[in-house]
Design a protein around this nucleic acid. Structure first.
Lengths: 168, 168
DNA sequence: TAACAATCATCAGTACACGGACGAATGCCT
DNA sequence: AGGCATTCGTCCGTGTACTGATGATTGTTA
């Protein structure tokens, strides 16, 4: 499908691709924006030593109450290895608790501790500011549309990264 | 302007921020899109064992001819530690060559080898396809606007990540 | 010229991010 | 019940990404 929408100005074909400056390549800009947001997040949450990914996991946990690692992995869009890694760090800081699930002894049920919950509260405003600053260069209208497009791109490709198999 | 457009679904203030689903947070979506593009890139360049970052560095090198590590770092938006790390891998694969600069013995001048150039050629089409697929969910018009906004966001914040000091 | 600050690369340490392999537990299927 | 594929977590290895510290070199300035 979709085999040759060349011709319309931009969209040059694979030919002269590598002469395209980095600044105009989607992958490059996406990576850079990711870096920028991470830097802003850490800056806004200074003193609390937390990262965007950890914040995502804690947030998800807050919204879900209890969750197995694999459920968490799907929720935040990471593979299970990575989630286990991050959770180990969070557990070391006593922000979450992990215990073997009673129903299925293969699984580990994860919960937020009080400390975890408290951290989430403290960090909340900083996280909001970081997100706000990330998009600050766009006018409100553009910002909303940008977010919609972003969501569309992510949803469209949700099936091809990490947790490909049993999604559903 | 825009001081409390609450009510209209989105844009709530920092208050109930953490009740916002992950799927609607900029940082989350940006991270996911970055993952997706990386996955697509690797998939499209299968067999050639190369990553987007390595491709960026090789591309930059191709466009610049020769470059010191620090120049390269600024060009691709990475810190010098990371660049040195990636370059070490590329050098191990004989894709680049590093030698101490004659003018300034603190610096290392980096060049593309023939193998590096050849790899760049081979990978080019795959890289283009990956970029194309990353944005496939958007109509051409939306795609262009999205890219413009993306560039705007990155430029707006160029000074706060990594190579902050001597950038002009 | 001799002390000094700045610059560049590297090293060590930490954190994300993934694939592959493995053991334990589970569910199914005969 | 016994076998067997699947699922879940973990371990190992690789690759990005940054901070902080260190050593070598350079440029400046007293």
């Amino acid at each position: 499908m979709a085999q040759k929408a060349a011709r319309t100005q931009g969209t040059q074909d694979t030919e002269d691709w590598h002469s395209k400056p980095l600044q105009e390549r989607p992958g490059f800009l996406i990576r850079r924006l990711h870096q920028i947001h991470t830097a802003l997040f850490v800056e806004e949450c200074a003193g609390e030593s937390i990262t965007p990914v950890q914040y995502s996991i804690l947030s998800a946990l807050d919204q879900m109450g209890v969750a197995e690692q694999i459920v968490l992995a799907r929720a935040v869009g990471l593979d299970t290895t990575n989630v286990a890694d991050v959770l180990a760090r969070l557990e070391r800081q006593k922000l979450v608790r992990r215990r073997v699930s009673k129903h299925d002894k293969r699984m580990k049920a994860v919960t937020l501790t009080q400390a975890g919950n408290a951290l989430l509260q403290r960090v909340d405003a900083g996280a909001a500011r970081a997100h706000e600053r990330t998009l600050a260069a766009l006018a409100p209208k553009d910002r909303e549309r940008f977010m919609r497009d972003l969501a569309k791109l992510v949803v469209f490709n949700r099936d091809l990264d990490t947790m490909s198999p049993g999604v559903r």
